[in-house]
């Protein structure tokens, strides 16, 4: 797991935590049933308040990414790959929107970007 917070990031701390844990689950860095660090462990390691981490874990649980068992800690839920894919697709769409808008100003079309993407995939 790779979680590092940035004070200059526009997102609040708890959101940075949830996003990075979701990324770790999506990339397979964290696998279903893997144990997450305790709230105290993570808050001490990241030098933030326990409330921040609690909030992050609650959100992750609500979204179905983790399960918390009383007295045992938090574990990665058996997430469906489709749900992760949907989430990533939404992110990619948002980034592409920015990219396409700034590129068209330079006469670079969506087709050019698609060609570049295929080229990168082939590398």
């Amino acid at each position: 797991m790779f979680v590092v917070l940035s004070p200059t990031h526009p997102d609040p701390m708890y959101k940075q935590v949830t996003d990075q844990i979701k990324d770790a689950i999506a990339s397979g860095d964290l696998k279903p049933n893997d144990r997450l660090p305790s709230v105290r462990e993570l808050s001490e390691a990241l030098n933030v308040s326990a409330i921040t981490i609690k909030r992050a874990y609650q959100d992750l649980e609500t979204d179905g990414f983790i399960l918390t068992r009383a007295g045992m800690g938090s574990f990665v839920a058996p997430v469906e790959r489709d749900a992760l894919r949907e989430r990533k697709l939404a992110e990619v769409q948002e980034e592409l929107r920015r990219l396409v808008r700034s590129s068209t100003k330079f006469g670079i079309s969506a087709g050019d970007i698609a060609r570049l993407a295929r080229q990168i995939e082939g590398d």
């Binding site: 797991m1 790779f2 979680v3 590092v4 660090p37 462990e41 993570l42 390691a45 990241l46």
Partner: peptide, 8 residues
């Protein structure tokens, strides 16, 4: 800054 979950 070494941290258990990634360094800076």
């Amino acid at each position: 800054r070494r941290q258990p979950f990634g360094s800076r």
